[in-house]
């Protein structure tokens, strides 16, 4: 009898899970396997081209310092953007979760999510218009400031960071918001009644309790930023060559899919390694 129930449970579980697994197979596993296959062959196997299995695409990474240098540059960019997203996003989430209620919160939420609803290319090109020398930003600042301002941020690293932070900030705000909202207000009140200063409350109560959400947000930002290519290319100009743009070049401009695939997998491995190295710290933060 008990076995019968377990079996129907199992069948039900399989039935309920199968769409998710089917989706994972079609959308994640198959494309990734195709790319894994491309990464170990000499030429794209279309038509009559001759190809054979090789490890050269991976050793190409080691043969030239260019790729490693660019990868480091991209990882540093990821760190900068993630740090800024957390620094800006966490206070925003705090305000949304604890200080504003009702209609105003809905309106603010809309403004946080709004960037998500616009096409990312449109966002980036609008930033290009704002940041360019004698553009919207320079003109506005010159109008307010008594001296003429010449920032000309376009085609600098700052422009890339601004564009990326704007694109990925909602991830941090939303995940941190969910974590912060779950914190019982009475905990904070209790701390305050026992004489804790605000930084003690932040450090001892709020940060530890909201850490899972904050970390999830940071990972959601860090991983795509390391592989980003559109923002660096459009906003970075001459300085916009990153690991992601080199991979894009392999696929779009020079048609060397095998090398592009191999570089992508190296990126995946490095990102996983970074997350694995960071996991003891992250796990500690969670407990």
């Amino acid at each position: 009898m008990a076995g019968g129930i377990a079996r129907t449970d199992r069948l039900r579980a399989i039935a309920l899970l199968s769409p998710a697994y089917l989706w994972l197979t079609v959308a994640v596993f198959l494309p990734l396997s195709a790319m894994a296959f491309f990464s170990i062959i000499t030429d794209v196997p279309f038509g009559d081209t001759e190809w054979h299995v090789t490890g050269e695409n991976y050793t190409a990474f080691l043969e030239s310092p260019t790729y490693a240098r660019l990868l480091l540059k991209s990882v540093l960019l990821g760190v900068k953007v993630t740090a800024l997203c957390v620094l800006i996003g966490f206070p925003c989430a705090w305000v949304l979760a604890k200080m504003i209620k009702g209609r105003a919160r809905e309106a603010l939420f809309l403004m946080v999510i709004l960037p998500f609803w616009s096409n990312s290319l449109v966002r980036i090109f609008s930033w290009a218009i704002v940041l360019r020398g004698n553009g919207v930003l320079d003109k506005t600042l010159s109008a307010i400031w008594p001296w003429p301002v010449k920032l000309n941020l376009l085609f600098t690293e700052s422009a890339i960071v601004i564009g990326l932070v704007h694109s990925y900030l909602p991830y941090v705000i939303l995940t941190a918001y969910l974590a912060l909202q779950a914190i019982d207000d009475s905990l904070i009140e209790a701390a305050r009644s026992l004489g804790a200063k605000w930084w003690t409350i932040l450090w001892r109560i709020v940060l530890p309790l909201s850490a899972p959400g904050l970390i999830a947000g940071a990972v959601l930002v860090f991983v795509p930023v390391v592989g980003s290519f559109m923002e660096p290319r459009i906003l970075g100009g001459r300085l916009g060559t990153y690991y992601g743009t080199v991979i894009e070049d392999q696929f779009v401009a020079v048609f060397n899919w095998p090398l592009g695939a191999a570089l992508s997998f190296i990126l995946l491995a490095v990102v996983l390694a970074i997350l694995a190295l960071a996991s003891p710290v992250l796990r500690k933060a969670r407990t």
């Binding site: 794209v44 279309f46 038509g47 009559d48 081209t49 779009v252 020079v254 048609f255």
Partner: peptide
């Protein structure tokens, strides 16, 4: 097409 390499691939793959 967007690049010469792409032309070559298209000619190879779509006889």
């Amino acid at each position: 097409f967007n690049s010469e390499q792409e032309t070559l691939t298209k000619l190879r793959t779509n006889p």
